[in-house]
Each structure stands twice: as structure tokens, then as C-alpha cells.
Write a protein that binds this DNA or RNA. Structure first.
Lengths: 146, 146
DNA sequence: TTCTTACTTGCGATTGTTTGCAGAAGCAAA
DNA sequence: TTTGCTTCTGCAAACAATCGCAAGTAAGAA
């Protein structure tokens, strides 16, 4: 596992400053173990230092996202989720009926990515896609939400 | 062109009520001619009746989206865009560097849709996808935002 | 036509996220 | 260590979008 000090060093190497808040926030993202909301991450940070502002958490998460250290994912439920980018690239299938989330390996998207590059000259950012739809258990029952 | 009264009739056919607000909002979506924000649609409605509330516009747009009468698209700029669903199903490639928007025909997505169904039993909602990335003119110049 | 009832609306409050600003603090150089 | 520059933070306010509630109203029944 990549130690989080290495990641913090990447911040400084790119001219950003290494602050206690950033340290705590990055550690909280790591400890959350994936798919954590900004609010959840912030609550975790507050346990260590109750003065850290929520906007600082948001700004830091954005910085880490820009640097590629964390992934931000919009699962379609109105809140963004964050997770460390150290694991293998993967995607999500989200059932709009029961909310079930399935992982999707990247190689399923590679043919599409290749075709977009070949036919449109477009280099798609397939870093952490989310596809909405109906899962196996839900799309047999056609319409009628619970 | 599908007349908007036909669309309003579809509302009533599904047990929803046909109110002047819904009439105005649907007409505003039509007049906007695609990719209009909720706020822009609301401003258009206010010209006809300044008492219509923004939340009514949002609720109506959500209803129309659920019924498949309009498409909601998140272009990645923080605000959702709405357009009538009467045209052919299509998708967008959005360049994150220069903002250029390209149309993408649906048949490019069909192999992926089929594979998700076959391998995962997942019926993906590929109604109006948006893929972020770099267009032909922008991804030659590697990094360095303007 | 009037009645009735469930669906809609306007309003205000709330959520999730972003931004502007003044003071605080990291970091490189002296 | 101190200085000085610049970035970062906390605070408060703005923002897009949603929600709860009481009053309003469409549409079928009588």
C-alpha cells in the first residue's frame, strides 16, 4: 500500500503546501476505504480537530482529485463520493431502482474507448465511470417503483 | 414536430394533472431549443407568469424527465441541462479543455450496452450520455491548461 | 352545476457544494 | 531565526437543487 506521506510529498513537489488539514483529510479518505461522502470524510477529520472547516475539506478533496490522488464519483444520489486512486481502475453499474452498485472492470470499456479515439479523435476520460440502469433482479419487473 | 399538447396529454394519460404551470414549462423547454438550464427555463416561464416558483420548475422538469418527455444532461459544469426528447437518441463528447461538444450516434454505444446486458444482466440507461475527455485538437498538446 | 378528493403549487427552510475575503501559516531565502 | 511572499484556512454568504407543509385547484362523481 502506498503510504500517505508519499502522496503528501507529491503535493509539495507540485508547489502545494503540506498542511495538517490536508494530512488529516487524506488520511480520512484512506481510512474510509472507498465511496465516502465529503460529509463523512469531514466528520472523520473533526474527531481529530474540530476546527477544520467543511469548505477546507471540499477544497482539499478537489485538489486531490485534480492531482489524481483521489477519484470523485457521482453515484446519482446527489452527493459525490471519494476514494483513493491507488487501486485498479474500475467502474460502477448503479441500479436506479434498488440502488445496488456493481463493479465493472475496465476492459469492458476499452473497445468503446478505442473506437472514440479512432472514429472521433477523442481521448475519453474513462477513469471512474458510473452507468445508471436496472440490475438483473429489477428489470424483469418492468415499471412500478417501490 | 410533435405538438406540445400531445405531450401534455401523455401527462394526463398517466394520471398526472394538466396545469398551466406544466404547460408553460414544457413550452419553455421546447422554445429553448435544447441544452437549457433549469434557471433559463424558469426565466422564460416568468415572462408569462411571474408567480411560478422555481421549485415548481424543478419538480416539473423532474416529472417530464421521469416520463421520458425531456432528457436531463449533466455537462459537467455544475448545472443540469434539459431538452425535449423528441429527437433521435444521441450522446455527447465534451472536451474538458476547450469545451467543444460533439454529437455521438447511438450505435457506437450499442456493443457496450449489449455486453453489459449479456455479462452483467444490467440494462443500462443509455438515453443521453456525456463523455468527458480531450478532443482531437487538444490532446496533442499534452498538459498545461490555458 | 356543485362537491370532493387527491394532486399541485408557492413558500420557506434545508441540503450539498462553492466562493470571496481577511487573517493565519507554510516554506524558501537571508 | 527572522523575514517576506504566497498559499491556505475559517468564516459567512452564495449557489443549485430538493423537501415539507398548508393552501390552491384539476378533474371525475354526483
Amino acid at each position: 500500500m502506498t503510504h500517505h506521506y508519499d502522496l503528501l510529498e507529491r503535493l509539495r513537489a507540485q508547489g502545494h503546501r503540506l498542511t495538517p488539514q490536508r494530512d488529516m483529510i487524506l488520511l480520512a479518505v484512506h481510512d474510509a476505504g472507498g465511496h465516502a461522502s465529503a460529509e463523512e470524510i469531514h466528520q472523520q477529520v473533526l474527531l481529530q480537530n474540530p476546527n477544520v472547516d467543511l469548505s477546507t475539506t471540499y477544497r482539499t478533496l478537489e485538489l486531490l482529485t485534480e492531482m489524481g490522488i483521489v477519484y470523485r464519483t457521482d453515484m446519482g444520489d446527489g452527493t459525490s463520493r471519494y476514494e483513493l486512486a491507488e487501486e485498479e481502475m474500475h467502474h460502477h453499474l448503479v441500479c436506479r431502482r434498488c440502488g445496488r452498485v456493481m463493479d465493472l472492470s475496465h476492459d469492458v470499456l476499452e473497445p468503446l474507448q478505442e473506437r472514440l479515439r479512432a472514429d472521433y479523435g477523442f481521448a475519453a476520460d474513462f477513469t471512474h465511470m458510473v452507468f445508471q440502469g436496472l440490475c438483473e433482479g429489477c428489470h424483469g419487473e418492468s415499471t412500478g417503483e417501490p
